[in-house]
Write a protein that binds this DNA or RNA. Sequence first.
DNA 1: TTGAAAGCGGTACCAA
DNA 2: TTGGTACCGCTTTCAA
Lengths: 339, 339
Amino acid sequence: MSNRPTLKTIAQIAGLSHVAVSKALRDAPDISAATKERVKKIADELGYTPNLAARNLYLQRTGAIGMMVPAMGDNTAYDLIFNRVSMAAAEQGYCVMLGSSHRSVDLEVRHCRMMVGNQVGALIIAPCTSDVSHIKAACGPTPVIFIGGKVEPDEDYAMLCDYHHSGELAVEHLTGLGHRDIALLTYGPENRTVTQKEEGFSLAMERRGLAPRIVRAGHVGDAMRAGMDAVELLLRGGEFPSALWCASDYMAIGAIKALKAHGLSVPGCVSVMGHDDLYADPWPDMGLTTLHTPMGEIGQAAVELAIALIEGRRQARPRQVFQSTLVVRSSTGPARRSL
Amino acid sequence: MSNRPTLKTIAQIAGLSHVAVSKALRDAPDISAATKERVKKIADELGYTPNLAARNLYLQRTGAIGMMVPAMGDNTAYDLIFNRVSMAAAEQGYCVMLGSSHRSVDLEVRHCRMMVGNQVGALIIAPCTSDVSHIKAACGPTPVIFIGGKVEPDEDYAMLCDYHHSGELAVEHLTGLGHRDIALLTYGPENRTVTQKEEGFSLAMERRGLAPRIVRAGHVGDAMRAGMDAVELLLRGGEFPSALWCASDYMAIGAIKALKAHGLSVPGCVSVMGHDDLYADPWPDMGLTTLHTPMGEIGQAAVELAIALIEGRRQARPRQVFQSTLVVRSSTGPARRSL
DNA sequence: TTGAAAGCGGTACCAA
DNA sequence: TTGGTACCGCTTTCAA
């Protein structure tokens, strides 16, 4: 914040008022071409950049959108969402203030306050808890667009995934391969992503006259171990399903690992599906059949809503639900007649 | 940016001037305790938050640091760096404006301009090219702290890694296991991360009276394929080394994949090391011995320098070099007498 | 103890 | 075609 040139600096050099300079730089119709050129030349030489904070203060506008996530990377998809958010915001001339809450409610509140104080016009938040009252309290009138798996569908503004539909897709794919004994593997704690998957799965199975099996094991914080534990539970419990659908890719990796440790090949003996499609990139050989969640679209839609709210356009859709799509790779295959 | 309460709003309700309210809220010594309490109560009820943009405008300060990366996630470590940047900045009351340049010079410039216009006090940038003149031009007097592998070590402000040292560590570890025929696998394009690794490796080998072998194949953009290609090249070229050090973990994964495809076990037949330590988390089973790069420390140091520059403390270290540390897992083992 | 005035860097409105 | 004045929300200085 050093001695950056301002309108006044230019005005002194040009022998004009700062008002005339402001107009000249913005090509106002009531300034002579000669003056404009002279002013612009001086501005260029000085490397003048307008102070957007001052401009926005007067115009009662903002040039920034806030975003908060529990963490970047770390087996989340927020990095993918952010990339698109940054792109979409930049296209419309908005900066993005990003904060990582480190899964702490306290930090979440502090970041909200800071961003709101710094005049972000809207906040895109993936909360770290289902209870978001502290966020709303901290943000006051600044609109909050919720994203992520912990969000309840009755928020004013939210971009969500339809995990019921995921259940239908998973069952459709696996039964299409001839599987009839299919288990869904999930973990705690209970939240919308888990219960919707369970409900969607159960419904899809029952619609086909099949008995849904659901195994809940472990914790989302160590989804890979949860996958391993779930397989162990199934192995102890009688007949093993011919196909597994796991609540996340990371859990599916754990499940595959446990299966292989027991000499069960994938997909030869057991087919395995995941959810999210986060691991194709870092580990292309995994060949995990999964349900791709459209992270980019979610980010794009969130930004569009944010800017619509900021600029007062009311036709924006305040809530949108996104559906996953099937990505068939090599971890699922035809069901054998018998195991 | 709607009808948020301001000092004036409170002043009207309290029947005071906005100046008195300002003072009361900041616990100025010249306001009576009774008035302070009354004012604070009203502010609380209204959910008043100070407009930091206005405050900073007057105080000629800033509350934001900028950061720009080529992309979040996508096999980079910028997500890890960002998490620490966010934490360290928040601790000191600063927000972080983050932009993803999508590896485009044009977007890089646009983001710089936007952030500078929005009054970030300093920028932490991982540039997408070695030539950073466009960045400096766009940022003007705003200080830029460079991070990442493309940065030349003569920048005013930079947080870098010492890849020479990485070479020494890799050779030390592998020769300690009895390996004498060691190859370094790298890729294009040439930049500091690659050449320093090559130099450090060569020097460390020669110091031990060993002949360094370096294979360059493929491109950093598909490091996994580069690793596979490099192994193929080596297989065609006579005696296979007993150990490989790869320029990145991702390349090491490719190398291991190719080795296994040829029936060469790791570390039984060939030991393999990587660099960066990015994949322990998403894929713990990989068991890759690697060199851990202290991403968190880099982020922390960058923020500390940024804030020191913003607040005018000059004792901050403008350039720091960080060293990787060895992480032994299961992809390296004792050299056999003969292959 | 309180408040009026000035200023941060911009823009809008109106008079010259 | 210009420039003066007022204002955005806040803080500092100084006078009442």
